[in-house]
Every structure is written in structure tokens, then in C-alpha cells.
Amino acid sequence: MRHLLSTKGLSQGEAIRLLDIAEDMADVADREVKKLPTLRGKTVVNLFFEDSTRTRISFEAAAKRLSADVINFSAKGSSVSKGESLKDTAQTLAAMGADGVVIRHPASGAPHVLAESGWIDAGIINAGDGTHEHPTQALLDAFTIRRRLHRGAARGKGLDGVTVTIVGDILHSRVARSNLWLLTTLGAHVTLIAPPTLLPMDMSGWPAESGFDLDAAIDAGPDVVMMLRIQQERMNAAFFPNSREYSRRWGLDDERFGRLAPTTIVMHPGPMNRGLEISSAAADSAGSTVREQVANGVSVRMAALYLLLSGDREDS
């Protein structure tokens, strides 16, 4: 694997291979010494043009557990905020000998441009580009679902027949887009539930059902309910009247949570707005995977870094 830019292009075989490697990486986390020498001497740059402490430290932990050297490059307070272009930043990192670049950027396609431009020869991992994709989040979500369903016998398996309902701001969610492609590639059935204002204008090409009615979606008995964060900036842009109304119609409150089967997996990519899109009872329930998702994120990112940076990066 040369780069990891999106889940849309991932084949089922590639996805399962990555998840299986993540299982191996998760085993490392259970050891007394949580470190592998695999990427010793490699340099991974976390190039973050948006604030995201969670994602950045997850990648940092993943790289360090593989013994890579990690450089954190935040756009804030750097030359980037003084108008340095993506091109100049990339060429600077190339000159410093970066082997891998983990990029978070507000513009859709920025990781793709970085990978295709010839400005830098490093392997590129998309850590979230605009409202386009966030492939490692989807991979960790798939990994989490697979582990919950299959426990210690998850290796080699997909998500055939699993029903996943994703609820919230689909329009602006790179998590939803990456999950849509990956989960369906793995055999799951995806349903997207949101206010009409927060669904993309044209989803005719999306392999998913969509609707506005969370209650009907709950009553359909999905295997997984994934709640998405409502960003503060949506509150004042006429996407919905106010947070109370949103919560009443599209929040996983205690009453809706109570109607779910006890085996239902409740997910949230974090950070949560407790009491808005998800109640505390749901977030802290036995069905909730919120903390597992964080732990699994490190394993999945280790797998991605391993596939991109160990050995001959040119092979498949």
C-alpha cells in the first residue's frame, strides 16, 4: 500500500488484511513491553492543519509503538499560518527526510494533492480532509464492530449482513463517508439518518438507505448505532432550529436507547456532546464502544503505518 487516502478505493481483501494486522498490533498492546522495532529509523510527520488532539496523539502513539521518530507539525503558530503554501510545507518535509506524512487538512482532496503532486515522496495517510474522508476512523470503527461480534475469532472476517445505522450530520461528516464505503465493502448494510438539511443533496450513488426518522430506524433493530457529533458551528446556520429540537428528534436519548436490543453496539467517534446527540446512559452503557474505539484507533493506525512504511512500499 503506497498511500491511505480514502476507503472508497479499498478492496475487501485490502481492508480485511489491514484489520487483521491491526489485531496483531492490538496483541502488542497487551504485552508488558508495548513496542515493536518495525519502523526504527523511519520518520513520521503528523501534519495537522486543523486542531485535533485526539487523532494526532492516536497517530503519535501508533508511530511510537512501532519505534518511528515522530514530528508533530501543527499549522497553528507555524509558517503555514503566515501563508506558506501546502507545496512549500511538503517540500520542506521532503527535504527533512519524512518517510510518512499523516495529514489532517480542512480542504477535501488535500492528501490526494500531496500524494500526486510529486512535491514529496513519502507515504501519505489521510487523517481527515475537509468533509470528504477519514479512512482510519472508519477502519477503527469496522475493527471495533468486528471484535465485538467475533471476539477472539475476528481474523479474516468481514461484516457480512451487519446492519449499521449512522445518525447525525452526514452532510459534513468525513467519518460517515469513510464508513459508508468501508462498511459496505466489508458486507454491512448502512442506513443514514439525519435532518433533511444535514443529508447530502444527492446520494443516488451511495450504497446506503437514508431517512429522517430516527425512531423508525431504532425500531428496525440495527446491530450498530453510530452517533455523530453535532458541531457548534451548525447551530447558528439554519440547519435545525436549536439544539433542543435536534436532541428531541435525532438524539439517542434514554428512551430510544431503552428500545434498542441489549446486544446493540453503540458507537461515537468522539468527542461527544453528552445530552445532545447521545445521552450519558447510552454513552456509558455496556453496549457502548466509545473507549474501545479510542484504544482500537491506535492499533488500526499502527497497521496503516506498518503497511505504508515497512519494507517495499511499492508492493500492492
Binding site: S108, T131, H132, R177, D202, M203, S204, G205, W206
Partner: peptide, 18 residues
């Protein structure tokens, strides 16, 4: 707005120009 609003802008997550 970044591109024509439609199926492609929805997929790419770009703000559409309707």
C-alpha cells in the same frame, strides 16, 4: 462553494454551487 452541487460534490464532501 467549490464545485457544482450534486452527486459528485456530495461524495467529495465539497461545498456545492447549486
Amino acid at each position: 462553494a467549490q464545485m457544482n452541487e450534486g452527486a459528485l460534490s456530495s461524495e467529495l464532501g465539497m461545498v456545492g454551487w447549486p
